[in-house]
């Protein structure tokens, strides 16, 4: 049994939707960090796309510039 974190009460949709917004931002951040690490480890864009459930082209288009900038720091 997994202990889920406390979620905003369903009778407060505004708080629940604010949580969705914050989680979306967090997911985007996690995706960028994880893909940057995968590229560091030599993953191809095809492998990254496969792991994310999107095409290699979509993964590259979405994240390549940011990954390149982070690796070039």
């Amino acid at each position: 049994m997994v202990d889920l974190p406390p979620v905003p009460a369903p009778e407060d949709p505004e708080a629940a939707l604010a949580a969705v917004v914050a989680l979306r931002r967090l997911a985007a951040r996690l995706e960028t960090e994880a893909v940057t690490e995968a590229v560091e480890q030599g993953w191809t864009w095809a492998q990254i796309g496969e792991a994310l459930g999107i095409s290699a082209q979509a993964a590259h288009k979405k994240l390549a510039a940011e990954v390149r900038a982070r690796r070039g720091r």
């Binding site: 917004v21 914050a22 510039a65």
Partner: peptide, 24 residues
């Protein structure tokens, strides 16, 4: 606002880093 929403879910993600790539 974003931090509070995550804290409400039991998450503490710390400050979000800026995007590194220039806007194109």
């Amino acid at each position: 606002v974003h931090d509070d929403a995550l804290t409400g879910l039991g998450l503490d993600a710390g400050p979000a880093p800026a995007l590194a790539a220039p806007a194109t």
